[in-house]
Design a protein around this nucleic acid. Structure first.
Lengths: 343, 343
DNA sequence: CTGAAAGCGCTTACAG
DNA sequence: CTGAAAGCGCTTACAG
């Protein structure tokens, strides 16, 4: 491997000082146009690239963001939640656009992960993304907060969780999908998904759902089964429901992954969707457009979410004022709910 | 935000020199046990973390690997190939185990991406992962090679592609799945998937498939339709086949994503799988265990692949001798092929 | 517009 | 086992 060129080599070749090389390469307005051109020309020839470690050390910033992805410890290795992967993609793109690098790290909540990335100057800030046990999560977040680490988290704004939150309005999403189902004349419901402190997203979706039913005096016509966000949990949830001997008109799933399991169980039992029972999901993961029947779902705009997370974090890093943001959720009507408008 | 502590602060508090602090923190054997304990204790209290930029600058290595993920430009944003995402997960884990950080970057092949990560000392080496147009790809890889950049690529070893390759034996995978189908008594076949220079993985799978048919004198009983690795392409491919008026006994898909589209088209046309026609995929993505029927596929061991990629790259970085590696492929028998052994 | 110089926070020969 | 010193490759006040 060849020796790497330094700014001194360029300076020598260009017949200017190393300071001028640095200025020219950083497009400082202080440098003469002709000098700049010559320096940049030589840099290109030598395939010179600024040493990021030196530059970062000097500037005391890294132009890097760390993404900490918390996995649900119960999910197996290969089945990362597709929603988070979509987010990963959009965060990567947003970072690239802002000229930041992205350090990605999958974390188990048990790990001692707190601010290490920022503390060691490897990253200027941190994005937290993941479901998981929020009791544990919360302590860590509080710790980040107290250390003055720059971070944003994906999730609903919540006094109990310090720091800035960017999230999607799960409560409103739960309302919207339920209103849609009511507009189709549905009158009995099951909700499959966890409904507890450890899963605040699911809980908010459930609250939106049940409050809407209450508004219409239908809350008595609802049952609920717990399920984490996996195909298997959905499969088991609907089986548990079927073992009671009767099914409601609609199965509202707290996530599309859950709905996948529900659809499979129903197919295996020759129960027609949407004719015998309607099914709706949440997240609008890409596969939902391709199931049979295609799955009605609630979309969280991952592209916008990634941009908001990155841009908000960058503002925080620059010590600008930042605020929580709650994105609206959008019902995507497909076949599984039995809507006449479905495509 | 509080001022960050430096090694000098620790030295002051511990009453030793800064050099000793550095040694103690790096567990150098040169340092006295008692001194080490005291230094580490103080470092913990101050929540001190070594500044990576300074440390990397001094050591001239970054302990970071860059993963360049090439997307198929035709696939939409949210539908990243699940196989690569599984790889992402396993690469991340392998990096963590080796105490390396992972910089992730999605790349379009048009971008000027070549060695920038290593050139700017942000990464010690690069992992290249992705399908895509190999004509373009190849030039860039040659460029990396000539610059002496440390890198490994995912893909089949190939004289035409310089550099070290870790890949899965697609030819053997194609053979194995075909042998399995023959053992089930199948006698007419369709292969859905691209078969050209731009998709060497698919081409190798096709070669394994067609050579096996030839061996059994059955190559006349095969048709082929082009398809890139998307659900939609698979859907269109099978429709094109159906428009001829007859279907073979088996549809061999070049990827599970293609098989998803095939299954959907068959369901929509009330063609029973596996009774009317058998279907097999390739990649064994997680969703394949949950389709109806469950999909027979060929597994590439992503966990092992991630570890091999990372460990091979680390060896290359240390200037150890490294070699291409071709992992065996394994047929995962499920319902869609109609095997009696299926689960 | 340019150059000489300081210094970012470490690691590691070198000397003891 | 420890300390004083050099230096990794930059950026940026400071002086002109």
């Amino acid at each position: 491997m060849k020796e790497k060129a330094t700014s001194f080599d360029i300076a020598h070749l260009a017949g200017v000082s190393q300071s001028t090389v640095s200025r020219a390469l950083n497009n400082s307005p202080l440098v003469n146009e002709e000098t700049r051109r010559r320096v940049q020309e030589i840099a290109r020839e030598l395939n010179y690239k600024v040493d990021k470690n030196a530059s970062n050390l000097r500037k005391q910033k890294s132009s890097t963001i760390a993404l900490l992805l918390f996995e649900d410890p119960t999910s197996d290795d290969s089945m990362i939640n597709p929603f988070f992967l979509a987010m990963l993609g959009s965060i990567t793109r947003a970072c690239a656009q802002a000229n930041y690098d992205l350090l990605v790290s999958f974390q188990n909540l048990e790990d001692d992960w707190h601010a290490e990335y920022e503390d060691s100057n490897k990253a200027d800030g941190i994005i937290l993304l993941g479901y998981g046990d929020y009791t544990d999560y919360q302590n860590k977040v509080a710790q980040l907060e107290s250390q003055g680490t720059h971070f944003v988290r994906w999730g609903a704004p919540d006094e109990a969780h310090p720091g800035v939150s960017i999230g999607c309005d799960n409560y409103q999403g739960g309302q919207n999908i339920t209103e849609h189902l009511l507009s189709l004349g549905k009158a009995s419901f099951a909700f499959i998904g966890d409904n507890g402190q450890q899963a605040p997203e699911f809980m908010a979706r459930y609250q939106g759902y049940i409050d809407t039913l209450k508004k219409h005096g239908l809350e008595k016509n609802s049952v609920q089964r717990n399920a984490i966000s996996t195909e298997e949990a959905g499969y088991n949830g609907i089986l548990s429901l079927m073992s009671t001997g009767e099914l409601p008109q609609v199965i509202v799933c707290a996530s599309d992954l859950i709905a996948m399991g529900v659809l499979r169980a129903l197919r295996e039992n020759r129960i027609q969707v949407p004719d015998d029972v309607a099914v709706v999901g949440y997240d609008n993961i890409s596969i939902s457009a391709y199931t049979t029947p295609t799955l009605t779902s609630v979309q969280q705009n991952t592209k916008l979410a990634g941009e908001l997370l990155v841009n908000t974090l960058l503002k925080a890093i620059n010590n600008e004022h930042v605020e929580d943001y709650l994105m609206p959720a959008e019902v995507i009507v497909r076949q599984s709910c039995g809507s006449k408008l479905s495509k």
